[in-house]
Design a binder for these strands. Structure first.
Length: 855
RNA sequence: GCCGAAGUGGCGGAAUUGGCAGACGCGCCAGAUUCAGGAUCUGGUGGACAUUGCGUCCGUGGGGGUUCGAAUCCCCCCUUCGGCACCA
């Protein structure tokens, strides 16, 4: 008998799919569309297990939905601009363009070797002028709308990547990519006005019912809306005002000092001559610290020598510069109410500043001297002029009203979200289509001059500012006045590229627009998006913003790009650690010892696969050894998609064993089933055959439901395994025609149900069974509702909640029948000897519980 | 500190609406086949006790509760992971 040979089979079917153009799609109004998208990869060189998992999950759905009759758009492309390409150029002298192209070429073959069913005609790469010209086009549109602007600002600077990072791209004061500690720098920067959409981005999170709550919460936190008031505090003996933001206008009467951020423009200005040295020293010291160190240090501050006036009380309070006040949030100035804010409380205690209680709690009296912490809850107003005695929540509104009347403040909503800084001082990215002219200033390029092509002949050193700075690329003429002018040399953040690529996939070859409107209207929104959670507030927020901005520019007609989102878990594996040599890869281990130093190594925690932990597994080696079908099957079987997956070589073996089992089961029975039709209902079957058919159809139901309702591929696969196991145990004579027909139906079902998971072996067996239409063009099996109903059902009999027996009764048995049978059952009767029946509970077709009292 | 998710055999995990806990897989044990090993097939495999038979008791992180019945619902606590964290 022919053994299972994944290599040959997989190659053969991949060639056939390609030849038959099996997965290309067109707009087709007569079919229901389904846009299935997985986050496209950065072409780093080779795919990793995270990609394999992400794309396997996507491919199962794509293949399943196609068989279900949907017109499935399932594209793939490359997020091809980015720093690693440039670093490769610097370290290995290879041009970023070539490096990227070669990586794409290799990774494309890897994806094809996995058998993923993409429409390769739609492949896009963001580093090609044909793609990025539309980036530039969109940038100009945003500029026209006032949604792109340039300003000097304090930015996050990653010294290792030598470029700016957006707020979203730093984590705990470190670069999201290389983990270097981020510095602060003042630079001229292009920004996109994402804050214009803060409210809508926030509100729509409450409508994205197809997204994981976790991601929505993260986005809401990031947007960070808070409602409060802006209040002006005039500076004493000056015409300056300090504007503050507070969420607690009800505590205005309790202000005892003012705190400014060290970067606040008024900080230096308001400092009196005799305090200048101290204040400037303090500011210098604080601003030399990284964000991270600043957050770690304790509360400190210095008095500026100036005072400001509380607009309601007329009282003068001292102005401090304090290290815990952030210039980035609110107005960079905070009215300090030590009695009702913990930070102000600590600061006041440290510097001996007064504490004034203006809200008292319901059941106790607050004594400023005895307080151990600030009282931050609502309460009743006290010592607050006309507001005394009001509940604080009510006073909040009233005080804001009064401020508005006095023109000293107003109700405000503040967001933590900042505008998106997109300038990057690096080479391998999309040029910003802007020209600087001495006469005309900042001039956007006219649309017909796009694309601004990134020059290829550059000298990359990795030092200094953008490599484009000294290049002839810079020199141009002003589109407005025709005189000599200079191009912008910063390139765009690569997150711009990925903020709209899903739209480009709907019409990737369109040359006169970013995409065709009709195509986008037909395909959008993405019905199912799949990717890692690491983009919860990066890519996923930017893409939502772009979609809304494009809608308002009249380019798209949707509010949200991704209807359903699945965030898959990480691929993990245990780590091995040598006390001498650190982390070890599998190759560095032998017989429990480190190959380098011979010491015994310790088996460590199960952690996300990463090069630094040396616990990665190369997909190529797994495909080589077991084939793509096994690789796919294992990643789908080992855990449900949203959970972390623990890699196990034994588990992979198990998957391979299963496919071999299927292979043998089908090929062994080929002679029997070749010349019959699969059973399709009709003539009556005897008991054992009925049972097989019942199993077959129950499996169809179970697999279909697990696939579409829950994406629980692991349980879907286990159901197929059960069917295979029971077919192996079929030990009666299979020669008669009904048996052969039922067998054929069962085997065809196994193969069809398996096909989204392991498409190559499934196609091969399907063909061997005599089918001429390939599975990818075959409809998904439907179950026969009559076949899944059983003539008899199993009733569990409990006595006082404990299982004491089981009865097989006819499906239509009544409660009385079941009770009678139960009481007549010998084992159950024995349990009832010493008890009196109080009542019985009967759940139809499931359980009979007899509740008793001890006699 | 705040918010969220999770905790089930030796391991990965299942139990869809409150109704037989442990499906399926891995590992392990035994049998068949084999000169042998591997592969394959079959059976067993939560714990304790009993294994002369049926079996009995315990068991889903811990404690309490609701219910005829709880892995599932409620309250308290513990642990792990993730996110946020001077946000005024």
């Amino acid at each position: 008998m022919e053994p299972y040979n994944p290599r040959g089979i997989e190659k053969r079917w991949q060639e056939r799919w390609q030849k038959e153009d099996a997965f290309s799609v067109e707009r087709d109004a007569s079919k229901e569309k389904f846009y299935l998208l997985e986050m496209f990869p950065y072409p780093s060189g080779r795919i990793h297990m995270g990609h394999v998992r992400n794309y396997s999950i996507g491919d199962v759905l794509a293949r399943f939905l196609r068989m279900r009759g949907y017109n499935v758009l399932h594209p793939m492309g490359w997020d091809a601009f980015g720093l690693p390409a440039e670093n490769a150029a610097i370290n290995h002298g290879i041009h970023p363009a070539r490096w990227t192209e070669e990586n794409i070429a290799y990774m494309r073959t890897q994806l094809k070797r996995m058998g993923f069913s993409y429409d390769w005609h739609r492949e896009i790469s963001t580093c090609t002028p044909r793609y990025y010209r539309w980036n530039q086009y969109l940038f100009l549109k945003l500029y026209e709308k006032g949604l792109a602007y340039r300003k000097e600002s304090l930015v996050n600077w990653c010294p290792s990547c030598s470029t700016v990072l957006a707020n979203e791209q730093t984590e705990e004061g470190r670069c999201w990519r290389c983990e270097s500690v981020v510095e602060k720098k003042v630079l001229m920067q292009w920004f996109l006005k994402i804050t214009e959409y803060a409210e809508e981005l926030l509100q729509d999170t409450y409508r994205l019912s197809g997204w994981p709550e976790k991601v929505l919460v993260m986005q809401r936190n990031w947007i960070g809306k808070s409602t409060g008031a802006e209040v002006d505090f005039p500076v004493k003996d000056s015409d300056k005002k300090i504007k503050i933001f507070t969420t607690r206008p009800d505590t205005l009467y309790g202000v005892t000092f003012m705190s400014l951020a060290p970067e606040h423009p008024l900080a230096a200005e308001l400092t009196s001559p005799e305090r200048r040295e101290e204040v400037e020293g303090f500011i210098k010291q604080v601003s030399s610290l990284t964000t991270r160190d600043r957050e770690a240090s304790c509360k400190e501050g210095v008095f500026t020598g100036s005072y400001c006036i509380n607009p309601l009380t007329g009282e003068a309070v001292p102005i401090y510069v304090a290290n815990f006040v952030l210039m980035e949030y609110g107005t960079g100035a905070v009215m300090a109410v030590p009695a009702h804010d913990q930070r102000d409380f600590e600061f006041a205690r440290q510097y001996g500043l007064p504490i004034k209680v203006v809200i008292h709690p319901p059941e106790r009296e607050l004594n400023p001297d005895g307080m151990e912490e600030a009282y931050t809850e609502p309460g009743v107003m006290k010592d607050s002029g006309p507001f005394t005695g009001l509940p604080s929540e009510e006073a909040k509104e009233k005080i804001v009203e009064m401020l508005e009347e006095l023109r000293m403040g107003k109700k405000t909503v503040n967001y933590k979200l900042k505008d998106w800084g997109i300038s990057r001082q690096r080479y391998w990215g999309c040029p910003i289509p802007i020209v600087y002219c001495e006469g005309c200033g900042t001039v956007p390029l006219p649309y017909q001059e796009l694309p601004v092509i990134l020059p290829l002949d550059v000298n990359l050193t990795g030092r200094g500012l953008s490599p484009l700075k000294g290049h002839s690329f810079v020199n141009t003429t002003c589109p407005r006045c025709g005189r000599d002018a200079q191009r912008e040399t910063d390139t765009m953040d690569t997150f711009v590229d990925s903020s709209w690529y899903f739209l480009r996939f709907t019409s990737p070859h369109t040359e006169d627009a970013p995409f065709k409107r009709e195509d986008a209207s037909y395909w959008m929104p993405v019905d199912q998006y799949i990717g890692g959670i690491e983009h919860a507030v990066l890519h996923l927020l930017y893409a939502r913003f772009f979609t809304k901005a494009m809608r308002d520019m009249g380019l798209a007609d949707i509010d949200e790009p991704f209807k359903n989102l699945l965030t898959q878990g990480m691929v993990c594996k245990e780590t091995k650690r040598c006390p001498e040599c650190g982390y070890l890869s599998d190759d560095e281990c032998q017989d429990g010892r480190c190959k380098h130093c011979g010491r015994e190594y310790a088996t460590g925690a199960v952690e996300k696969m990463s090069k630094s932990k040396k616990n990665t597994v190369d997909p190529d080696s797994i495909i080589e050894r077991y084939g793509a079908d096994t690789t796919r099957l294992f990643t789908l079987f080992a855990a449900p998609p949203e959970r972390d997956l623990e890699w196990s070589e034994e588990g992979v073996e198990g998957g391979y064993r299963f496919l071999n089992r299927v292979w043998r089961l089908v090929t062994e029975h080929l002679p029997l089933i070749k010349d019959v039709e699969p059973y399709r209902g009709g003539e009556r079957l005897d008991g054992p055959l009925e049972e097989i058919r019942h199993m077959t159809h129950r499996t169809i139901k179970k697999v279909s439901e697990d696939m579409e309702r829950r994406f629980h591929f692991n349980t879907a696969i286990s159901a197929i395994m059960e069917l295979v196991n029971s077919l192996y145990l079929w030990n009666r004579d299979k020669e008669d025609e009904p048996a052969r027909m039922v067998l054929k139906e069962a085997l065809q079902t196994v193969v069809a149900l398996l096909s989204p998971f392991a498409p190559h072996i499934a196609e091969e067996l399907w063909e061997k069974m005599g089918n001429t239409t390939p599975l990818y063009r075959t409809a998904w099996p439907e179950y026969d509702p009559k076949a899944i109903e059983k003539e008899e059902v199993l009733i569990v009999v409990q006595i006082d909640g404990k299982v004491r027996g089981k009865l097989t009764v006819p499906r239509d048995a009544t409660r009385e029948d079941v009770e009678e049978r139960a009481l007549g059952d010998e084992a159950i009767a024995r349990w009832l000897e010493k008890r009196t029946i109080r009542k019985t509970i009967y759940v139809e077709g499931r359980i009979l519980n007899i509740v008793t009292a001890q006699r």
